[in-house]
Every structure is written in C-alpha cells, then in structure tokens.
Design a protein around this nucleic acid. Structure first.
Length: 310
DNA sequence: GGCCAGGCTAGCA
DNA sequence: TGCTAGCATGGC
C-alpha cells in the first residue's frame, strides 16, 4: 500500500476534466463522481498497478490524493508519481498561457470559460501512438470502442475487491504478437490493423526507439515517425501533444480543430491547412493548450452549453 | 440513405 | 509538389 498527496499547480478544474471525459471516453478510467475519484491501472516497472486518484481542495488550491493497494518499492513509487504528474499535467504553469490568451478577446473568453482545464495525457508513448492511429478519421466514440476492444484482447486485466475490472494498455510486445484477422474480427479496418501491428513490431525490433524521441525537437520527432506507414503528420502531432505533453503543437489537419476555429473566429468558409497554421501562429508558444481550449469550445457550442457572439 | 467523424496511402498529373 | 479516390464503420 502506497499513499501520497500531490499539490497541483493551480488552477486545476477536476470538474472540467470530468466533463471532458463524458464526451471523450477513456476505456481505462473508472470514474467515481460522488467521491471525485478516478481509478485506473498504470504500468509501473512493466507491471500493471491499480491506482486511485482522489481530487480534493478547489480549483485555486487543488490537491490530488494517490492510493495504491499494492506495495511499491521507493523506486516504483517515484516512477508512479512521475507518471501521474505527467498524465494529469499537475506541474504545468497556466499563468503565461492565460496572460497570452488575455491579449485576444476571443481567446480571453475561452480561458475564462474553461479555466483550470488541462490535458489528460497518455501514460506511455506506445499506447499514445496506437490510440492516435485508432482515432484517425473515425469519430471519437468509435475510436474509444476500438481502443476498448484492443485492451480487452491484448491488455492486462486487474480486478479490485468490488469486482471492478481494469485494463492496462497492452505492451508493444503483446500487440506485436497479434495477427491481422484477430483485429478484423473486432471491426478494425484492414489498414488500422496493419498500422498498429506494424508499429508495435517496429518498436519491439528496435527500429523505433520511443525513449529517444524524448530528447528530440518536435520537428525531429515528426521527421522520425512520419516515414512509418500509417503515421502522418497529424498522428505525430497528436503523439507530441497527448503523449509527450509538448506545449506548442497545432494539428492543422484535424477536422474538429478546424471546425472549432471557424466557430470561435466566426468564419463561414472552409479553412485550408495553411490558413489554420497562419491563424495559429498568434498562439505560439502555447498552441497545444489553445487547441485544447478550442476543441473544448466546439464541443460546448454543439451541445448548446455555450454561445458567444464575438 | 447520405454525410460526417480529432486521416493516411497510393496513384496520378 | 499538389490533388484525389478509397478505405470501413458508427451516429445522426
């Protein structure tokens, strides 16, 4: 058993995270609303560990209580804490972002409306890349269904004392052992099946060194991964944002972001990728977070939770 | 039934 | 270099 409390850099809005999770389901998370707690399995030292995360305090004084039933060595404890800090973006300083967004009326309203919203990052790069590939072109609900099926097929299953089941994301080795027909049965397209198995085998073979990506610039990571079949620029940009937490990415090919920019900026005509990048230049060096807030805005507008007349 | 989803590849000019 | 058909499926 291991317990620890993390002081999160304010502001942090757990309610915004929960709200986002309603529309961006994560098959790995179990949400316990009444106690502000998330449960999920993290892979620590290669082994899946069940972790409870209880959010406490307030948006301006946020705390996170971590609890595991399994005993962990000090090294594993440190590894888990690092994973959690990364996943929940607990150390990101939003003040410079908000200062930047305050200079533009449209962005200022976004920052105000979604104050405390942060990225929930993937806890491993392999899983992040696979989820991104599964998310190509299809809607988010179907992408989540495919992820769930892959987890059930190849992931590690943990169970708590209440009988709740948790799935740890499969390792590259486990996905590399899969064959295409197994995934086709689960409604994966031929291409998605090929792409993720090929990627897993490249990781296992050492043709792709995920650890080495950490020391590369964004452009170097893009240049390194886009030669792989099934991985285009959008996918690497998503890996950099949602897997590595890099702050200044703009996935201009993203249909949701494109729609969001049109809504937020009140533009009627369809924007080209070049136009999106041009608009986004003003958001540097915080393009990832502005993108997140725009994604959130387009969802809120579509659901009728928010409207703005700017 | 048509169109759209947090795209990518291969083929072609 | 730039454009486009085809891919597979679910939801509205």
């Amino acid at each position: 058993m291991f317990q620890q409390t993390i002081v999160i850099k304010p502001p942090y809005s757990f309610q915004r995270l929960l709200h986002r999770l309603e529309f961006h389901p994560d098959p790995q998370l179990r949400i316990e609303r009444e106690s502000n707690t998330l449960h999920r399995a993290f892979r620590v030292g290669g082994q899946p560990v069940l972790v409870s995360l209880r959010f406490d305090g307030s948006v301006e004084e946020p705390l996170l209580h971590i609890n595991t039933h399994a005993a962990l060595t000090p090294a594993r404890q440190a590894e888990l804490l690092k994973l959690i800090r990364h996943s929940f973006s607990t150390d990101v300083d939003l003040a410079p972002l908000y200062g930047h967004m305050a200079e533009n009326e449209r962005l200022r309203l976004l920052a105000e409306r979604f104050r405390g919203l942060r990225f929930l990052l993937d806890s491993d790069l392999f899983g992040s890349m696979v989820r991104t590939i599964l998310g190509q072109q299809v809607n988010l609900a179907f992408a989540a269904a495919l992820t769930d099926r892959l987890l059930t097929l190849a992931g590690d299953v943990l169970e708590d004392e209440q009988g709740n089941r948790y799935l740890a994301f499969p390792t590259a080795e486990a996905v590399a052992r899969l064959e295409i027909p197994q995934l086709r049965e689960l409604q994966f397209s031929q291409r998605k099946a090929e792409y993720i198995i090929d990627f897993a085998r490249a990781v296992v073979d050492g043709k792709v060194d995920l650890e080495r990506l950490q020391s590369m610039t964004d452009d170097e990571v893009i240049a390194c991964l886009t030669p792989l079949r099934g991985i285009g620029r959008w996918s690497v940009e998503c890996l950099l944002m949602f897997g590595m937490g890099r702050p200044d990415l703009l996935p201009a090919a993203d249909i949701g972001l494109r729609n969001g920019i049109q809504l937020v900026y009140g533009i009627d005509e369809k924007l080209s990728e070049a136009q999106i990048r041009s608009i986004g230049e003003a958001w540097a060096p915080y393009r990832s977070y502005v993108s997140l807030y725009i994604w959130e805005a387009v969802g809120a507008m579509r659901r009728g939770e928010w409207q703005t007349d700017i």
